[in-house]
């Protein structure tokens, strides 16, 4: 058994924290180790001395004064709590009212001064993608023609899906034209012109 372990056990034994099994091993070690016996004796002396010196005598008047001060502080604290409570409640109500008023003011402000944008109705929602494709096509007329044809076909498909072709004169319907974007109208216009030109040329031919 190492003496360092024994020194720790000696401290635990003084505090009554050493198990019976360890006490037996400790005793066996102490019987054959004078150094640990000497250390054990020193710790016992320190313990006895420490217990005898720490006896502070306090006069009864000290405790009377202490208790009186404590009672006074406790009563003040209780009084403080009583006064605080309604105040805290009032502040809570004031805070809640202020928050509600602010909410109403902000709500009215937005309601009156910020018109909600009316969502546009698109028959086709390709505007962004069309612009992107146009940029990619660049100045290639062949690709442009092809693309226009694809767009027209898709318009046709959409109309077909909606059953517009079945109703006579669907082109005259204001809903069709009003819901088309400028870009789409221009595209259709250019295509009509192209067709007219082709027809004129064929007549001339």
């Amino acid at each position: 058994m190492r003496c360092k372990t024994i020194e720790k056990w000696l401290s635990d034994r003084i505090d009554g924290e050493l198990s019976e099994r360890k006490i037996k091993s400790l005793q066996a070690h102490l019987e054959r180790c004078p150094s640990c016996r000497s250390y054990a004796a020193a710790l016992e002396k320190i313990q006895d001395e420490a217990r005898s010196i720490e006896r502070l005598e306090v006069s009864p008047s000290f405790w009377e004064e202490f208790t009186s001060r404590l009672r006074s502080d406790l009563s003040s604290k209780k009084q403080e709590k009583r006064l605080e409570r309604p105040l805290v409640k009032r502040w809570r109500w004031a805070g809640a009212s202020a928050a509600l008023t602010l909410l109403i003011v902000v709500g009215l402000y937005f309601l009156l001064f910020f018109e909600k944008p009316v969502p546009e109705m698109y028959v086709f929602s390709y505007e962004d993608s069309l612009a992107q494709i146009y940029r990619e096509i660049g100045r290639d007329p062949e690709l442009e023609t092809l693309f226009n044809l694809v767009v027209l076909a898709s318009i046709g498909e959409s109309l077909e899906g909606a059953g517009w072709q079945d109703s006579a004169g669907f082109q005259e319907s204001s809903l069709l034209w009003e819901n088309l974007s400028e870009e789409e109208l221009k595209l259709i216009e250019s295509e009509i012109k192209k067709e007219e030109k082709i027809e004129e040329e064929s007549h001339e031919g």
Binding site: E7, S11, D12, D15, E17, A42, L43, I46
Partner: peptide
Amino acid sequence: VSWRMHKARKILQASLNPYLEGR
């Protein structure tokens, strides 16, 4: 706590050794 008590006692024993031997 156990280790602190052990360390405290080691320190006390080292500083009080001359006085403990004289008793």
